[in-house]
Amino acid sequence: MSYSLVITEEISAMVKSPPMDKFTHAMFIEAMINLPVDPHGVGSLVRSEGAFTTRTFSVGPHGLITYVVDETTATVTIVDVTWLG
């Protein structure tokens, strides 16, 4: 099963903006490429409710991406990018 990948407008602006350096941006894209194929196979499960599963995975030493998998619509939504530390 393949999922479609969408991103919230707020995070979209963050990805396009200068604060995300080239290295982090490259890692972010690499992570995105893996998500539509197996969103449940990467990262860590945080919460599961009905058709929705919230998971996170790390990007580099400080990045944390949060995404929601919706089994009903086969959609993965990138919800947040957080910097740790």
Partner: peptide
């Protein structure tokens, strides 16, 4: 879970689940 609490991520998760989040295709 605590990190997502502090960053306010759960509000955005709820918007996605409710279908009210503004999103764009990757």
């Amino acid at each position: 879970t605590a990190v997502l609490n502090l960053s306010g991520t759960w509000e955005r998760v709820e918007q996605v689940k409710a279908g009210t989040a503004r999103t764009a295709p990757i």
